[in-house]
Design a protein around this nucleic acid. Structure first.
Length: 218
DNA sequence: AAAACGGGGGC
DNA sequence: GCCCCAGTTTT
């Protein structure tokens, strides 16, 4: 897959996405570009599916959408609001400790530096890059399992872990596509290019993919 | 009933 | 590099 083909593939996906679902965090960022909401929603979304994150995040933000307001909530209240996302105890704790540190050290603002972000407990590269991209509109490549899986299926990169994928994409992916790459691939991954049993016959970008017409184990 | 799903940290 | 963490959705 060449740079130009990736550009074309993303354009095709761009036109498909309206009748798929836009990932909830991207949708949220379109409504109000708020790094705090992006950070908290991403925290909730870790190791859970996109559709279950949405309602949970809505319930929580109805109660509090700033660090100050969040710290006024009882941990139990947060747990109840986010319950279906799983790991609700850990996640509620993280929401509170992160909010506290934002207030103590950053004047309530979410940092826009990847190293500072990943120094927070519970924030890894995926979360940090998504905060930069969706929260601040700063070019950043957020590599989740969809991005990792599909980039490799396409043959655009040949990497075995998400960090390697991020580094490879950093070299190969044109900078103006860094922000949109994640939401487009997430949408494709959820509706079509699934981890097991991908629906290649209905895939709008199959013509770009090295898998089509070639038998592969995965 | 069982397997798939999807990041981060501790060790 | 291996293990753990919890709940929803799909098979």
């Amino acid at each position: 897959m060449t740079r130009q083909q990736v550009r074309e593939a993303l354009a095709v996906l761009q036109s498909e996405v309206p009748h798929w679902d836009v990932p909830v965090i991207t949708l949220m960022a379109q409504e109000h570009r708020d790094p705090y909401r992006v950070l908290i929603a991403t925290l909730l979304s870790l190791r859970t599916q996109d559709q279950t994150t949405g309602p949970a995040a809505q319930r929580l933000f109805a109660l509090a959408d700033t660090p100050e307001a969040m710290l006024k909530l009882d941990q139990k209240t947060i747990e109840r609001a986010i319950y279906p996302v799983g790991f609700y105890r850990t996640k509620a704790e993280q929401v509170l400790t992160i909010s506290q540190r934002l207030l103590d050290e950053f004047d309530g603002q979410v940092p826009d530096d990847i190293d500072v972000l990943t120094s927070f407990h519970g924030v890894g590269r995926k979360t940090a890059n998504l905060v930069l991209a969706e929260g601040y509109n700063i070019p950043a490549i957020c590599v989740d399992t969809h991005v990792h899986r599909i980039s490799n299926r396409w043959g655009y990169v040949k990497t075995k872990d998400p960090l390697a994928t991020e580094m490879a994409l950093r070299k190969k992916l044109p900078r103006d596509l860094w922000i949109t790459y994640n939401p487009m691939l997430v949408a494709l991954g959820q509706h079509c290019c699934k981890p097991t049993s991908p629906m290649c016959s209905q895939c709008p970008v199959a013509s770009f993919c090295k898998r089509v017409g070639v038998q592969r184990s995965r």
